[in-house]
């Protein structure tokens, strides 16, 4: 059975009109149900996570005492001195075993421009802490521009849609530091097969879309794909494990 390390998972958030908050225990139960060994987790849904300092503390607390949940805290440039310094944010993340930094440009009102993000991105680059970005927070062309500025830093593109295969192939070919999460909305007939054939399996990551999505959808798309076993293992867990091994403490 292919081991799974889920890059797109989370809990403890809620969204407009929803009363229920998914608990950490639900997340672990779903992981058990589908035999997902580990997950990179955020507070999700994150629409109402507007105090990132509190949100990150909540995340770290929930991830403590288990190595199955790897935190992916939100980070923001401290250009207005309203949150901790960039150094503090990154140090705190590393102390808590973070596997990536979640950058929410649109939600947190900042831009991927050198005059805004240089200090934060330089630090992520220095520590090789991957940047996790959702498609809803940054248009693909801006995402590519950002990846071009930091060719040694890994950028994870999450919530990839099924209509963008025509873009994903040149994106992954041209930017070897971009990683695509095959979770939630990536439902392409022959899509994984084509990406593996034309680009290789190294830049693809398994993502379940939990808690809003049924995880077996992304799992079945991967395990039934017509690619070799080694590629499935890389996509399932190997690539994300390799990214996390590169993080400098």
């Amino acid at each position: 059975m292919i081991p799974l390390f889920d890059v797109q998972n989370g809990f403890a958030g809620t969204t407009k009109g929803e009363i229920t908050v998914t608990r950490r225990e639900n997340c672990l139960r779903q992981m058990d149900k589908c035999q997902i060994e580990k997950s990179l987790v955020r507070i999700v849904p994150d629409k109402l996570e507007l105090d990132i300092v509190y949100s990150n503390l909540k995340l770290y607390e929930n991830c403590a005492h288990t190595d199955r949940l790897v935190p992916c805290p939100i980070m923001v440039p401290n250009t207005a001195n309203d949150i901790g310094t960039e150094e503090h944010q990154v140090e705190q993340a590393l102390e808590n075993g973070a596997g990536a930094a979640c950058l929410r440009f649109a939600t947190d009102h900042w831009l991927p421009e050198e005059w805004v993000d240089k200090k934060l991105l330089d630090l992520l680059n220095h520590y090789q802490l991957p940047a996790f970005i959702q498609s809803t927070n940054l248009p693909l062309e801006k995402f590519a521009e950002l990846a071009a500025r930091f060719p040694d830093l890994a950028f994870i593109y999450a919530n990839a849609g099924y209509r963008d295969q025509r873009l994903f192939i040149p994106l992954l070919k041209n930017f070897k530091n971009i990683y695509l999460s095959l979770g939630t909305r990536y439902t392409v007939h022959g899509g994984i097969e084509q990406l593996v054939t034309l680009v290789g399996p190294q830049q693809l990551l398994f993502g379940s879309g939990l808690p809003s999505s049924e995880p077996m959808s992304a799992i079945m798309q991967l395990v039934y794909s017509e690619i070799d076993e080694e590629s499935k293992r890389l996509i399932g867990a190997g690539n994300l494990n390799n990214l996390i091994k590169r993080i400098r403490s």
Partner: peptide
């Protein structure tokens, strides 16, 4: 919705529910 969408992915929502 194959081949607009992926058949295995779509089946997962029933199998896993």
């Amino acid at each position: 919705d194959v081949y607009f969408l992926n058949q295995a992915q779509q089946l997962g929502k029933v199998v896993g529910c």
